[in-house]
């Protein structure tokens, strides 16, 4: 049913630390690897070794340059995937009931057997979280690795999304964001975690932790260094020759 659940028991989601993320793309690879064999049809690639490769991904890492006032420019790596919105517009637009939000944990999923591949949910998502698989003609999206997190066949430490498990810098955190005492909620509280484009009314669950303020740069950008001591004496002498 594509009506949203009035209330969810949990709001599982990700907290992504933009201060720690180094943009290594390991989460992209781990996600693609796991979802090639897990939930639903595999994430396909087209012309993977040709001149114009293309493929379906549930997570993509962008890089932005941020210029703060009176500071050095900063590169911020920015992983982008489904935010498992509380008021998910992708769910309500679905004509077939394929797209749904689970009341037990808030995960937004696609029942691929009911998906007609109309693409309207991808249009409705402001975050580009959904991609139509070109081979299967059904919509793919982050499942929060629903086939890992409850999977008792896996060792307990592996029962988290593949992207979180693989992140070498610990920039990705997984947990219940509806519980104010959970680790992820406390992390959001402590670091001023924020939602993306909240003004669109989607009420995203995932949060991003802003990069920490960097200290002043050691030397003023593009200004000549002033040599001191012996080097300074040499500099003056050599300048006069």
């Amino acid at each position: 049913m594509t009506c949203l659940p009035g209330k969810v028991d949990k709001a599982l989601g990700l907290v992504i630390d933009l201060d720690t993320c180094v943009g290594c793309q390991a989460c992209v690879t781990a996600c693609k690897g796991w979802n090639d064999q897990g939930y639903g049809v595999p994430l396909s690639d087209q012309n993977a070794y040709g001149a114009k490769p293309s493929g379906t991904f549930l997570n993509r890492v962008h890089s932005y340059e941020v210029q703060a006032e009176n500071a050095a420019p900063q590169v911020v790596n920015f992983p982008r995937s489904c935010l498992h919105c509380a008021d998910a517009p992708c769910v309500t637009v679905c004509p077939t009931g394929a797209s749904y939000k689970r009341s037990e944990d808030g995960i937004v999923l696609v029942n691929e057997d009911a998906c007609i591949g109309c693409g309207l949910c991808a249009w409705a998502c402001p975050y580009g979280a959904r991609e139509m698989d070109a081979d299967a003609g059904v919509m793919k999206k982050c499942t929060l690795c629903v086939d890992r997190i409850y999977n008792t066949h896996l060792p307990e430490e592996d029962r988290e999304p593949a992207c979180v498990r693989t992140c070498p810098t610990g920039a990705r955190h997984f947990g219940d964001l509806s519980d104010p005492t959970s680790k992820v909620s406390q992390l959001v509280e402590a670091r001023g975690g924020y939602a993306l484009m909240p003004e669109l009314g989607t009420k995203p669950v995932n949060r991003y932790l802003p990069p920490r303020k960097k200290g002043a740069v050691a030397a003023p950008v593009l200004e000549p260094l002033e040599a001191k001591g012996l080097a300074g004496w040499l500099d003056r002498i050599l300048g006069k020759i």
């Binding site: 962008h62 932005y64 340059e65 941020v66 210029q67 703060a68 911020v76 920015f78 924020y194």
Partner: peptide, 12 residues
């Protein structure tokens, strides 16, 4: 991106 809270943002 929410990076407007830091400064001017462009694609790197």
């Amino acid at each position: 991106t929410g990076l407007d809270r830091l400064g001017e943002t462009k694609v790197f």
